[in-house]
Write a protein that binds this DNA or RNA. Sequence first.
RNA 1: GGAGAGUUGGCUGAGUGGUCGAAAGCGCCUCCCUGCUAAGGAGGUAACUGGGUAACUGGUUCGAGGGUUCGAAUCCCUCACUCUCCGCCA
Length: 414
Amino acid sequence: MLNIKNLREDFENIKIALEKRGYEINQKFFEELDMERKTLQIEVENLQSERNKFSAHFGELKSSRKDTSDLKKTIDKINAELDKKSIKLNTTLENINNFLLDIPNIPDDSVPYGKDEKDNIVVETFGKVFSKNTKDHLEITNKIDTETASKISGSRFSVLKGDMAKLQRALISFMIDKAIQNGYQEYYVPFMANTDSLTGTGQLPKFKDDLFQTAENLYLIPTAEVPLTNIYRGELIDEDILPLKLTSHTPCFRSEAGSYGKDTKGLIRQHQFEKIELVQITNPADSMNCLNSLLKHACEILDDLKLPYQVIELCSGDLGFSSCKTFDIEVWMPSQKKYREISSCSNFSDFQARRSNIKYKFKNGKDFVHTINGSGLAVGRTLIAILENYYEGGSTMKLPKCLESYFGSDTLKL
RNA sequence: GGAGAGUUGGCUGAGUGGUCGAAAGCGCCUCCCUGCUAAGGAGGUAACUGGGUAACUGGUUCGAGGGUUCGAAUCCCUCACUCUCCGCCA
């Protein structure tokens, strides 16, 4: 959520910044709404002030046993007027709030201009493509079973058997241990979150269709970012303990509405997938440094796995709703002969903090923190990348060295 | 599932209809004192928000939402959450 003060004082610049990401903000609508708010608010508050004064006087009359009937009539009139105006004011305030909740974050000045994903910039490429494999993961192993999953649940689910299930578990442990080594505190969190939490991190109200709702006020989490960030919702944090670094492994649930026909085969795009999430809660002055460090932490995992990847910076037009700057990490997928997203690391500046009311306390004041998060990494896609990049034909294959101790063997049965 | 107790500022916690945005303590800030440290003394210190260049001034907020009342932290109703005891249970 943007600061409404900035909208009042600096609308032009915000408008220009939002245009870079393709968002048209309706200036006339906002200014009329805010003007209406101002008029109504002054009227309501004046009436309240009058009522407060008369009520105090009423008390005085009562205690000296004087007649209050005239005064009561006056107050009744004020209250009747107040009721009418308050309703109007509340409607206006709600309209303003809905308007604000719909506005995406402002891109950082450093974000390259662009219209869509075609304008994203490759920052750096790491590792050489070494695989000659052309088979996709479903062809490489029969232990990833999407047909059985569709019997159990439907499309976009999977059943992993034997070494595939074990490899996934090994990857999770490996990634969590990496995060802990990099100073992140491990958490186990709820896999369902309420409306307030999801509004805080920006999924609601705008992206309700992307979520699975389980009850009136409960949704399956689309990422551990939601529970991890909301640990601090409504909290005031001592500046000394920043940056906070949190991690958790959770399943993630996404309805993938609007992606019909995209990546329909295999593990790439599922309703349920495993992910390790890295979250940092920081001092605003530090947040870009923290984004870089978090990006590095995610990259290290691919370095260790010796998988070829590239880091790309999202252009203004491709930024996610809540983000002011995002780097995606894309891993080489031999069967598709292209790099595919395996992590997305973003700085949300004070956007989530403002929605979630997360502040930090420094010597002479308080202010909203900045939040940063990214995957470290998406487990299913990592598993595919390992299969496809390391496969050399045959019914077994060698695993990357760093996984041996987690997997308990250097060879995977396919 | 049953019974009971609770939810108040950064924290602990008092407050049962107007003088309460709220005692006290802790913490924090400023100043004083002491060679330094420790201790001590004086004062200040809730949040959000409107108007105003400003000095200043108005409003809202005591878990959330309704209600009663001229007036609600305080009375009534609904909901959420927390705790205790009983039952059940991985």
